[in-house]
Design a protein around this nucleic acid. Structure first.
Lengths: 226, 226
DNA sequence: CGATAATTTGATTTTTCTCAAGACGCGTGG
DNA sequence: CCACGCGTCTTGAGAAAAATCAAATTATCG
């Protein structure tokens, strides 16, 4: 699904590393020092309108990237799980707010330093592009999800997506609340909850705990997606 | 709103030019030959799954980029108006289908040739990134539009967006059908039509013809957006 | 164990969709 | 110039989906 080759610098470095390994054209490597910071649940990592200082990568925990509307409604643009990069924007200011969904550890790399390397190194520059293109794919997929789809289709697609991004795919441990899921899918918490109950009654999933979801019948979930 | 500086190679070349002017690091310029092709209304410019051969730019007319679901539902990801670039993807295959909304003239530039220049030229490479980042912004804005918003909010935002992208902003000449608008906003044609009627009754817009829209009271439209 | 937050469930209302019919616009051919 | 046909758009009535309001239940944490 993603357009980024497996040798991406962002994919390659393991989640525990303090460094982003940057392969250069002549096969040497740079190590760009990144700072590790811990964020408590619901702590803001960066806010809408703030200058873009860092490229971020989830080491542990989970992050939501969202936008708050005047009337209190909120749209979550993406969730980010360990190993995923976020906060990379071409503009000078953040267009969204990023917050820790659970207690999280984030690797922060100076954006300016990274861009400086990209300006000198075609390989890095290309990766910069590909990472952004991957974000674009994500946003497009999310857009497709929000279009004219039923609650059942949205929730099923969400669960399958989460499962695909989790190591142990059969059981999904959701880090986020029903509120977060609702704001991600453009639904209310009540509808999300009811929809999960419907899927449970259909034996498509099991809910041993409200945030632990067993994909008992993934095919049934996939069948809900066009 | 857009993150791309005004000196972008894509922005800079005028819509009539057969060339995309590429400024290089040492201030010389390359001229990349692009082919002009004409497409009839509803003709396919490229299809989902096809290899990405060209970067496209609208010279005249309008383009819709969409995805068709198995059950016949269609989601339009974007409309592109004269001067706008589309079809630039990091992956090898197109994820969406592009079609001419009206009879259109499109400038097609070899993707491989452009990427080759980007690999040698940091300035061009950065532009490549920024153009993709602009697409990302667009997709994110569209995502926000499709989230939990009423038909009235969606249609108002759509009209304002079209107006902002049209030279003579007071009167918007829509190139696309109600069907296209509906599939772009995640609504039905009936709801789009009814919503336009509501806006007309509220004196927010006037409809001298079904595809000619006068923004009589843009402030009223803006008030509908959070 | 009690307080608080999160989740589920229920009843009702609102919004949008669906199905159906009618009106309009436009080009073609008589 | 008008009649006709066809595609597009609008309008209406009823059905379905999801939102809203409200309450009950379940988890979580000190």
């Amino acid at each position: 699904m993603t357009a980024v080759p497996s040798h991406s610098v962002f994919q390659r470095c393991d989640p525990d590393s303090t460094f982003i390994t940057v392969p250069t054209g002549d096969a040497r490597t740079f190590d760009l020092l990144g700072a590790r910071l811990d964020y408590e649940r619901n702590a803001e990592i960066y806010g809408e309108g703030e200058p873009v200082e860092f490229i971020c990568k989830v080491i542990s925990g989970a992050v939501r990237v969202s936008k708050l509307l005047e009337d209190g409604r909120r749209q979550i643009g993406a969730f980010h799980l360990p190993g995923e990069v976020f906060g990379l924007e071409a503009g000078a200011e953040h267009r969204f707010t990023a917050e820790a969904v659970t207690d999280s550890r984030i690797l922060l790399v100076q954006r300016a330093a990274f861009l400086a390397i990209a300006a000198r190194d075609a390989q890095v520059s290309r990766e910069l592009w590909e990472v952004t293109a991957r974000d674009l794919c994500r946003a497009q997929d999310h857009m497709l999800l929000l279009g004219r789809r039923t609650a059942l289709e949205k929730v099923a697609a969400f669960l399958l997506d989460m499962a695909a991004r989790t190591p142990a795919a059969a059981v999904v441990e959701l880090p986020m609340s029903r509120y977060d899921i609702a704001d991600y899918l453009g639904l209310t918490i009540e509808t999300v909850s009811r929809t999960l109950t419907v899927l449970e009654n259909r034996k498509a999933i099991a809910l041993p705990a409200s945030r632990r979801i067993v994909l008992a019948n993934p095919a049934a979930l996939r069948a809900l997606n066009a």
